[in-house]
Design a binder for these strands. Structure first.
Lengths: 232, 232, 232, 232
DNA sequence: AATGAATGAGGGTTCATTCAT
DNA sequence: GATGAATGAACCCTCATTCAT
């Protein structure tokens, strides 16, 4: 064990080794479980593998989680960002153009979620949603809806300030979400096992998506007259 | 059994019932397997369920596919459209603006793939890629690459004809792919089990995405000066 | 099909091909079954293999034998030599020394049983006896006992004529049987799959066994005084 | 559980019960497997039966042996006596007549192998040789060849000391092996299931075989002139 | 609290047997 | 009669879960 592990992680008095590990167990198990569930799926992941990756024995896993299914639920709960309030505040305080606001928002999302292992939770949820409908509903309420609300906030602001022209606000949200979800999906599926195909560079990817998202593909403003009307 | 099944399928001598069933079996099994693999994942789908959904007994499945894994591979093979050549021809023959061409392309894709049950193969591949790396590589070569080539063809055409302004062609492809993949993913995961959340209307979704994709969010044209340069 | 097969095997009017085959079916199935049971054992032999080797379909096997087990019993019944009466007569008519009689007997046995595929039945019975106790008892009565009676006949004759010195007649029978059974066992087990070990030459083997059997290993007659007494 | 099991097996610290069981398990399973494989054959023996006879559940078997086939191989390895070196030494140290040496050798073999359950391995190998050719080859090398070498050693000694007259040394070995193999075969096949037929008394059997083997059937000595010549 | 041996229900696969053709 | 597609009981093996240590 590296010496650093013997030092308490977040200030406070360093604990004796035994106690520290004991306290850290659930987190280590959740980390291991997230990795493996993302990699292999819930059904194909063996409990013993999770325990082994967390450095404990099979029996210990069941001391902390009463079943594999509860472990799954805990993994999801643990990895949904509860920081939407915080983000919302950051965005409400944002001063500047809405295009920059969107750029900032995606950057923050990438740094805090996309680039971390928590991003795997998206792939996990999408893969397993139909096997865990209650988890899916929970995720829908706790993550998807807040995210959509945030995006809508930005888009609405852009429209209100005369910066964005948006025909169908409800569905325009997906223009922001889709590229992000796609990036994460690739990172955790094909991108993780078909190296010749997809080492997508995230920075470049995000830059390109932002560019298209903000300005579109078309050269001429006059094309704007072909824009569809809001179907609502 | 529907009456139509009692009629010889393609003229000629009517086959005995037993033989006709035998001929139809692999297809019925593949259909059932696709449904279930998409719904529950490979590992969580029991062979017997596949057989039952196809209306046969467990043993019969193994008369047609030597193992569950081979069944999986056959499902993938069966559901990758080998029609890229055909599409390519259609697109090469296309006359009209590149924006319309892109619209036409996505509509065709939706009608022929997205709206059919074959669309589930995308979710399946993404969910299972890391458990079946060879399948993933196969899919990469047989589907992803041709699709990307088609998209690139259109985008390049738009650039060549002065219709599109594209900074980073290699990554702009993802601006076309991502919304389509996102739509399919939702359809087969959250959308299939969280009804209150996502009855995305595909027509409206595609219209909205095309709109943003072609024209961007920003009110024109003063933002153009903020466009990034091609990083290549 | 060789032309010879179209000719009735044992006299009589040649039948049309269909009828002949029909009549020959059970025998072909029994031959195939004997081969496979000897080679792989009863449990490890698949019914379909037997049918395939006999050139018929799986279903046909069950037209002639109601179950795999009945097939096994038929194989045993078919391959036990019912010719002990005939042999007994031959031996009773034998004129000459008892050593020659024994030699003749073993030669006949080798020619008519040991060298034929019927010899496999011995290995089969020994391998499967405990799974088919009634078959084993049947074999005991129908084969082992008559064989022992024949051997005893010869040995007794030798003793009566002053040619053989036999201490324990009941067990001396085994001195004749053991080498023959051993030869057959080797032929159908190790000898059939470990070529570097056991291509025992039957002629030489029998000659050697007869030699030892008749004269023993010891050089000096005076050793005779060490002979044990009949324990009976 | 017998009280003796609660006492540490070989001095030292008593093991916890669980650990002692763990240590004993493979042996118990191998014993059970030997019994059942000998009795019913490999294919007809169910894994669960083996486990049940060893007093454990089905799953436990697979904690110790990765598959039924590996269990089979372990049974064979476990039951081939690696004591040929030791025996060779005993025989090389033997002082006395070669006839007595042979008698001693067979007695030792009977006491240490024939009378034990390890003797079943012979029947097992012969029954299954063709289903496990690599096991057969292994047995050939590890058991048959050393045994033959030992027998040859004795016979050669007898010839060298002028005690034995042997025409064909290579095949005379079989005159020693055949009765022993025959005895074991009977013990484990017909003898085990046809009680009215074969309660062969081993002592008497061996005595009789030795008698015939050493002195032959024929009354001495005039027949000696009929002895065949060495065919080599 | 931690371990890991043990369990046994469950799932993939085989194959003897049936039966519509 | 002959076929071979279909069946489903039975078998091998896995792995989530338990519990004595």
């Amino acid at each position: 064990m590296p010496i650093s592990r013997l030092i308490a992680p977040r200030g406070g008095v360093p604990l004796a080794k035994r106690e520290r590990r004991k306290e850290a167990r659930p987190g280590e198990l959740l980390d291991a479980a997230l990795d493996l569930f993302v990699e292999k799926g819930f059904a194909a992941t063996r409990s013993e593998e999770v325990a082994a990756r967390a450095g404990v024995s099979k029996g210990t896993l069941f001391l902390y989680f009463p079943s594999k299914e509860e472990l799954f639920k805990a993994v999801v709960r643990e990895n949904i960002s509860g920081r939407f309030q915080e983000w919302r505040q950051e965005l409400e305080d944002f001063e500047g153009g809405s295009a920059d606001m969107l750029r900032y928002c995606l950057k923050v999302w990438w740094d805090r979620v996309g680039a971390t292992k928590a991003s795997g939770i998206n792939k996990l949820i999408i893969s397993e949603a139909r096997n865990f409908p209650d988890i899916a509903a929970f995720y829908q309420d706790e993550v998807i809806k807040p995210v959509q609300a945030l995006i809508r906030l930005i888009l609405q602001r852009g429209v209100d300030r005369g910066e964005f022209h948006i025909v169908d606000l409800d569905y325009a949200m997906f223009s922001v979400m889709a590229p992000m979800i796609f990036l994460i999906m690739m990172k955790h599926s094909l991108g993780a096992c078909v190296p010749q195909g997809y080492p997508i560079d995230p920075e470049r990817y995000i830059a390109s998506q932002m560019d298209t998202l903000l300005h579109g593909l078309c050269v001429r403003p006059e094309d704007n007259k072909t824009r569809s009307r809001d179907p609502k």
